[in-house]
Nucleic acid binder design. Sequence first.
DNA 1: GGCATATAGTTGTTTATGCAACTAATCAAA
DNA 2: TTTGATTAGTTGCATAAACAACTATATGCC
Lengths: 146, 146
Amino acid sequence: MPNNQFKRGELYSVINGMASTAVARRLQKNFRAAGLEITIEQWSVLYHLWKEDCLSQQELCNRTFRDKPSITRLIDNLEKQQLVKRIASATDRRINLVCLTDNAKSLQAQTIDLANQTMNEALVGVNKDEIEVVKRVFQQVYDNLV
Amino acid sequence: MPNNQFKRGELYSVINGMASTAVARRLQKNFRAAGLEITIEQWSVLYHLWKEDCLSQQELCNRTFRDKPSITRLIDNLEKQQLVKRIASATDRRINLVCLTDNAKSLQAQTIDLANQTMNEALVGVNKDEIEVVKRVFQQVYDNLV
DNA sequence: GGCATATAGTTGTTTATGCAACTAATCAAA
DNA sequence: TTTGATTAGTTGCATAAACAACTATATGCC
């Protein structure tokens, strides 16, 4: 089915180059406009810590879909900005627990508002059913490949 | 509508961190497995040149959704690998036309096969209608933000 | 206990991105 | 025709990603 294949090839360009980076860029811009000096990558780490604090770096890898070196360096930068602290696990000395500082806790409400606002800007003209389809397709694609 | 907003916030994580990078990673892996020493970013530039050769850098920015510095450096690297050449425009001396070398032309069929194969792996269990919804949503999101 | 293996995290290297500041060429308006 | 604004492209700097090689700790098997 060459016709179908061509359409799938087109979809690749769409997925890779367009909407996802446009959303990320807009969110970054909204952070900056609000005077927040964090990157969206740093925010994506904080986002998971707000849901559950003091995760290991490995657990952050799993939840943010990043590899270990990426998380190491994101945590390095977050530590420099005094938003998280590495705390050695008491039971397994290989593990660093990454814990939020008070500094980071105070950012939670504001940044989540900005993220919701960004998604509202992004999703004008998109209905709930379509969102559900996109979520299902992405989960399926992820499961197919990982 | 706080409930709706929360769902949109979740979608952001999905869009930004998951399926798109998983597809990109798989395509990169498939290139490498086939002995091709190009990155997916370089491929995305070549992809548009195969459709229409000798585009200006600005036109490549538009078509690949990248900014000018990104294209400058991608072209730098593609030129090092002798896959493209910068040719000064005869009519406007500000413009570089980016043209494929024979070297690059010979890659076209193979890499497009690999891209189609990658999308087939990625889209197992996803039907045509869902693909159309995803494409429409992404176009809408992009139009909303850019 | 001791060795092989697995797991958690770090470091080095290359490539890519975002933003701001810059040069050079073109265009347009007085 | 000269001056001011726009457009095309480059460079510097900080952050991030992919991959491979590495250290340190823990686990499991004999």
